[in-house]
Amino acid sequence: MLLLTYRNAIAMKKRFFPLLMELIVLQLFLSGQNVYTPLQNSEFRRIMLSDGLAGSVIYSFLQDRTGNMWIGTGNGLNRYDGYRMHTYKHLKNEAISLSNSRINSIFETKNGDLYIGTDKGLNLYDPESDSFTLLSFTSSYSIKFLLETHTGALWIGTNMGAICYTPQTGNRKHYYQGAKTDSLPGNYISCGITDDEETLYIGTTYYICKKSPGEESFVSMTLPAPTPGRE
Rank of each mutant, 00 (worst) to 15 (best):
Thr5Tyr: 12
Thr5Met: 06
Asn8Ile: 11
Ile10Cys: 12
Ile10Leu: 14
Ala11Glu: 14
Ala11His: 14
Lys13Ala: 15
Lys13Phe: 15
Lys13Asp: 12
Lys14Asp: 13
Arg15Asn: 11
Phe17Thr: 15
Pro18Leu: 01
Leu19Asn: 05
Leu20Trp: 05
Met21Tyr: 10
Met21Ser: 10
Ile24Lys: 09
Ile24Cys: 10
Leu26Met: 10
Leu26Glu: 12
Ser31Lys: 11
Gln33Thr: 03
Tyr36Ala: 08
Thr37Gln: 15
Pro38His: 07
Gln40Arg: 14
Asn41Ala: 13
Ile47Phe: 12
Met48Arg: 14
Met48His: 11
Asp51Tyr: 05
Asp51Ser: 02
Gly52Pro: 06
Gly52His: 06
Ala54Gln: 02
Ser56Ala: 08
Val57Ala: 12
Tyr59Trp: 12
Tyr59Ser: 05
Ser60Gln: 04
Leu62Gln: 05
Leu62Gly: 01
Gln63Asn: 07
Asp64Tyr: 15
Arg65Glu: 14
Thr66Ala: 06
Thr66Glu: 07
Thr66Trp: 08
Asn68Phe: 15
Trp70Thr: 00
Ile71Arg: 00
Gly74Tyr: 06
Gly74Ser: 05
Asn75Ser: 08
Gly76Gln: 02
Gly76Asn: 01
Leu77Gly: 03
Leu77Glu: 03
Asn78Ile: 01
Arg79Glu: 08
Gly82Asp: 03
Thr87Val: 10
Lys89Ala: 05
Lys89Val: 06
His90Cys: 00
Glu94Val: 07
Glu94Asp: 15
Glu94Met: 07
Glu94Phe: 11
Ala95Ser: 14
Ile96Tyr: 14
Ser97His: 06
Ser97Phe: 04
Leu98Phe: 05
Leu98Asn: 00
Ser99Val: 03
Asn100Trp: 03
Asn100Asp: 14
Ser101Phe: 01
Ser101Asp: 02
Asn104Leu: 03
Asn104Asp: 10
Asn104Phe: 09
Ser105Cys: 12
Ile106Val: 02
Phe107His: 11
Phe107Ser: 05
Thr109Tyr: 08
Lys110Cys: 08
Gly112Pro: 06
Leu114Asp: 03
Leu114Met: 07
Ile116Ala: 06
Thr118Trp: 01
Thr118Tyr: 04
Thr118Asn: 02
Thr118Met: 01
Gly121Ile: 00
Asn123His: 03
Leu124Ala: 06
Leu124His: 08
Leu124Cys: 05
Asp126Thr: 06
Pro127Met: 04
Glu128Phe: 13
